[in-house]
Each structure stands twice: as structure tokens, then as C-alpha cells.
């Protein structure tokens, strides 16, 4: 299936039609998307900053992540779920938007790093200063890129 066929299919799903026909549904879902993003911002980035060597020095990044992980993943679920609904309601417009494509690329890379390198470092008990720094910086930069491109989508 081509990207356009997929987008066209998304736009005729029930959820998409309901959102398109309502005046306030889209803005409300957008609000949920941003609130989710703020929570991801807080809980993921505190750990990334700790990996780099800033912030909550009183505990290891591994300990911080154990505490914040449920918050981070719930917030991410809210952000991704609301993001999917926003996309479905204007899929054809989104896929031709270069900023949206860039955002997806950043997001996919950030998620990939989270479940591979970042996860490995955060579950490890060895001290790996250089690797921790590299993973923290990469994760932070990728999420930052995704948010930056995301805000740009609406302006394109």
C-alpha cells in the first residue's frame, strides 16, 4: 500500500470522520497531546540530563529511571495515542508535509534509542560514564528534534 493510499484509508476511519466533523475535538486532542508531551519532557529528560551528568546527582540515572519509568511510559502512551488521532484526522495533509516526515523520523529514532541503547544503559549496573553521556545526549537531541518539527507541522 502506498503512503497516500494508507493516508486516504486513515481519513475515512470512524475516529477520523468524527474528529473532522467536530469543531472542538481536534483542539481538545491537541491539548492532550501537548500535556502528554510536557510529562514526557519532565520524566524522560530528567533521566537523560542525569545520564549526561546534570541535575539530580543524589541518585544514579538507573534509580531515577526506575521511579519515573511508569510516568514516562504512560505520558508517552497519551502522546502517541492522541498523536495518532490527530494524524488520522488529516492524514493526507500530513504525509505531504516535509516537517511531519522529519518529525516521524526523529520520533522513530528516539523510540528506537529508548528501547535499545538507552534501556541497556539504564538497566546496567556497571559504571559507563562515556556511554551514559552519549546515550543521554542522543536521546535528548532526538526528542528535542521531534518536538521542534512537531510544532512546525501546523505552520507549514
Amino acid at each position: 500500500m502506498s503512503a497516500h493510499a494508507f493516508a486516504a484509508w486513515c481519513e475515512q476511519t470512524g475516529a477520523s470522520v468524527v474528529i473532522k466533523e467536530s469543531t472542538w475535538m481536534f483542539p481538545m486532542i491537541l491539548v492532550a497531546h501537548l500535556i502528554g508531551l510536557a510529562w514526557v519532557g519532565g520524566t524522560m529528560f530528567v533521566v537523560d540530563l542525569r545520564l549526561i551528568g546534570f541535575g539530580l546527582q543524589g541518585r544514579s540515572a538507573q534509580d531515577l529511571w526506575r521511579d519515573l519509568r511508569p510516568w514516562a511510559w504512560s505520558a508517552l502512551a497519551l502522546t502517541l495515542g492522541s498523536g495518532w488521532l490527530l494524524f488520522a484526522s488529516e492524514a493526507l495533509r500530513c504525509i505531504d508535509n516535509p516537517l511531519f516526515r522529519a518529525k516521524l523520523a526523529f520520533l522513530a529514532s528516539a523510540l528506537l534509542v529508548s528501547v535499545t541503547m538507552r534501556r541497556r544503559v539504564l538497566l546496567s549496573t556497571d559504571a559507563m560514564r562515556v556511554r551514559e553521556r552519549a546515550v543521554g545526549l542522543t536521546s535528548l537531541a532526538l526528542w528535542f528534534g521531534a518536538a521542534l518539527m512537531g510544532r512546525g507541522v501546523g505552520f507549514w
Partner: peptide, 8 residues
Amino acid sequence: IAFVGAAI
């Protein structure tokens, strides 16, 4: 995101 993230 930086401010509210830290505040949260």
C-alpha cells in the same frame, strides 16, 4: 517543555 517538565 523544559519548564513544565522540571516543574512536574
